[in-house]
């Protein structure tokens, strides 16, 4: 049986209860192609069932919900199933299984979690803010995994007095710090008015980036390994131009990344979205 769920934690836990004893269960959030005769069900979140399931799992492993949160943030197609197999093992063994890396289910889940964390870590460095006329900072990003609110504590701690918006343009949502509160909000298109000297700072940064490179030691493979091409498009230093201008399409590693365009820094940051606590 295939169990479709919406990717939320509550729906996952509800589906988990249903699927736990089903040997051929497949949990998925995507558009899975059904083969002839295959049965499927769409599982809606049931708050009570989910809470019961969570309680039970926490008895076996008190840290397992942290893992689930990270697994469900993954952009991988198979994240539902990866999480399912991992949690089924916790439930079967009635104890934490995190260290048992020789097991497929654990190895896959830990790899999936590692990727989500790695992206969040990388973005702490690769995010680029632009300054708006109001003094607020705005950064568009297009991460593979749903991590934009994971970055909030990091930036709140270092920019406590400056409001900022981390805009996940792929998922049309934003993590916002208004100087006093942080929250997640849906945000489709953002129109922003840049501060008068923003372009001048960007061009100083481009100058700096060009000056510190040592052309006689070119190592582009290494550069791309550390800073994957899919992160380049929101960087004012424009690394692709620095290595001889690739066509824009080639800068996008995945199709999804190719879809979302860079927002146009013009106009004004319209109607602040209604606050919704994450």
């Amino acid at each position: 049986m295939i169990y479709f769920f919406d990717g939320s934690k509550a729906a996952f836990l509800t589906a988990f209860l249903l699927a736990y004893r089903d040997e051929d269960a497949l949990l998925t959030t995507g558009s899975h192609q059904l083969t002839l005769g295959q049965k499927s069900v769409f599982v809606r979140a049931d708050a009570q069932k989910a809470a019961r399931c969570e309680q039970r799992l926490l008895q076996f492993d008190e840290h397992c919900m942290r893992d689930l949160d990270l697994l469900l943030r993954s952009g991988e197609e198979m994240r539902g199933q990866t999480a399912f197999l991992y949690f089924r093992m916790i439930a079967a063994r009635k104890r934490p299984v995190r260290g048992e890396l020789a097991e497929n289910a654990v190895a896959d889940a830990s790899e999936c979690i590692r990727r989500v964390k790695l992206e969040a870590h990388r973005l702490k460095g690769f995010v680029r803010f632009m300054e708006c006329a109001s003094g607020a900072l705005y950064a568009p990003l297009s991460p593979d995994n749903d991590v934009c609110d994971l970055l909030l504590p990091h930036f709140c701690a270092r920019l406590p007095h400056i409001p900022f918006v981390l805009h996940d343009v792929r998922r049309a949502k934003a993590a916002v710090w208004d100087g006093a509160h942080s929250f997640l909000a849906p945000l489709g298109e953002a129109e922003i008015v840049l501060a008068a000297d923003e372009t001048a700072w960007q061009s100083l940064w481009r100058q700096y980036y060009a000056s510190v490179n040592i052309p006689s030691r070119e190592r582009i493979r290494q550069m791309k390994g550390y800073m994957p091409v899919r992160y380049w498009k929101f960087m004012p230093e424009d690394p692709s131009a620095a290595i001889g201008d690739l066509p824009f399409a080639a800068r996008n590693a995945s199709d999804a990344a190719a879809q979302d365009g860079a927002p146009h820094p013009r106009g004004s940051l319209q109607s602040p979205p209604a606050p919704r606590r994450p």
Partner: peptide
């Protein structure tokens, strides 16, 4: 730590960009 104002330290360090020579850009040198 941030004591009002801007910035804080990140004990593990952080790379912000990489130049075509494969080196990391972390600080304004």
């Amino acid at each position: 730590r941030n004591e009002g104002g801007i910035g804080n330290g990140m004990p593990d360090g952080c790379c912000h960009s990489f130049t075509p020579d494969g080196r990391c850009v972390s600080l304004l040198k």
